[in-house]
């Protein structure tokens, strides 16, 4: 597999699902952590770990705020993250095309 061309941060099953899901939201949208967890069917700890890795490379922005008295964490794909995801998808398509030809 020519993995060298693929973004190693995204090219991990669980993180790919996280990024693809965030990219599926309208641009400029954020999703609350607990809702994202529900959509993905992941445990809170697992999702946190992956989000931290994505945040470290600047692909996602995590925002913590208070709504009334309860803390709410919301997550969004950054424009860098969206671009990385698009590049990753394009690379996959190119690889697939190369494999067929």
């Amino acid at each position: 597999m020519t993995d060298l061309q693929l973004d190693p941060v995204i090219h991990v099953q669980a993180r790919l699902r996280v990024v693809a899901t965030l990219a599926g939201l309208a641009s400029g949208d954020q999703i609350v952590f607990t809702r994202l967890q529900k959509v993905l069917g992941m445990t809170a700890g697992n999702l946190s770990t992956h989000l931290r890795k994505l945040e470290d490379v600047g692909y996602v922005a995590v925002e913590k705020a208070f709504e009334g008295r309860s803390p709410v964490t919301s997550v969004a794909l950054t424009s860098k993250g969206r671009q990385a995801f698009e590049t990753y998808t394009a690379s996959l398509e190119a690889l697939l095309k190369g494999a067929v030809e």
């Binding site: 090219h11 991990v12 099953q13 445990t43 697992n46 946190s48 770990t49 964490t73």
Partner: peptide
Amino acid sequence: MTDPREPDDALDDAEET
């Protein structure tokens, strides 16, 4: 973000697509 970490954290990077 929600901590604490859970045991399944360990397996993440091993699962390449």
